[in-house]
């Protein structure tokens, strides 16, 4: 992911990764219980602003990501919009039966997926793996074995990519990549999958033995190379999140855009 991130001076990079994770995980529960379409619309507006301002992607990428997330979110709402239950029919053609209720529910679903997608982009683009796992160990007390295991695994990614290249070249030389048909595709898939998996498992086992020998799985009091702590940035982060969430709820009360305050009514 490193080449994607250019500007690491942004505020969200400095926020404690565990705090970010817990905060976003809480937002999931919160918005799962929101059935008011107006709240969701205003929340989407608020989070769009925050994401466009705070994400860690280069500018030309961030707008693209934003639009893509938006379109994809409404793909997931298509089934609900076209075939949802409801009594006030807006449009009917063959199997398609769009009703007011299903449209409202679909939009709610689409916006919710969009907000979670934005949070995902916001998290992934501002959280490099190394501080994330160090923070998990120090703040959330995740057992060291698991966190270092993850870190070691991430180190193996470039090697996996290289091996993938080797397998591709080997297949090219042997003419496998030119074969057509379902059987050839299956064989190719199996060769890629097995090659990568076998080498990864062997490497993981070797690495684990070495790590064990160096007491990486030690449970007693231990020190960390990177100390992830708390700072004023965390307070700013929390305030930004609180303002965003609260503004979504307040604006929906002050300026309700639709009459749908409970989308699960009507089925």
């Amino acid at each position: 992911m490193d080449p994607v991130i250019t500007d690491t001076s942004k505020l969200f990079f400095k926020v404690n990764p565990s705090l970010k994770l817990i905060c976003f995980a809480f937002l999931f529960i919160l918005y799962l219980s929101v059935q008011n379409l107006n709240t969701m619309i205003w929340t989407t507006v608020a989070f769009s602003i925050v994401t466009l301002w705070a994400n860690g992607l280069p500018r030309k990428w961030s707008v693209g990501f934003f639009l893509m997330t938006f379109i994809v979110s409404f793909f997931s709402a298509s089934a609900m919009i076209l075939y949802g239950k409801g009594s006030h029919v807006l449009f009917q053609w063959f199997l398609i039966r769009t009703t007011e209720e299903s449209l409202a529910r679909g939009i709610q679903l689409g916006l919710r997926t969009f907000v979670f997608g934005l949070l995902g982009v916001l998290f992934a683009s501002t959280t490099p793996p190394v501080p994330f796992f160090y923070s998990l160990m120090q703040q959330l007390k995740v057992p060291v074995r698991y966190a270092y295991g993850c870190l070691a695994a991430f180190r193996m990614l470039p090697m996996m990519a290289e091996e993938l290249g080797h397998i591709r070249q080997a297949m090219k030389v042997r003419g496998m990549s030119r074969q057509k048909g379902l059987r050839a595709f299956y064989e190719r898939f199996l060769h890629y999958a097995l090659g990568i998996l076998v080498q990864s498992i062997r490497r993981a086992q070797r690495t684990a033995v070495a790590m064990e020998a160096k007491r990486f799985s030690m449970k007693e009091k231990r020190t960390f190379y990177y100390q992830i702590g708390w700072s004023r940035k965390d307070l700013i982060f929390l305030s930004v999140m609180t303002v965003t969430v609260v503004s979504g709820f307040l604006l929906s009360r002050w300026i309700p855009l639709t009459p749908y305050t409970n989308v699960i009514d009507g089925y």
Partner: peptide, 16 residues
């Protein structure tokens, strides 16, 4: 009980 080898192999497979 899971040892480091189990964990690392699991995580590497999960990474894939």
């Amino acid at each position: 009980k899971l040892n480091l080898t189990d964990i690392l192999v699991t995580i590497v497979a999960s990474l894939v």
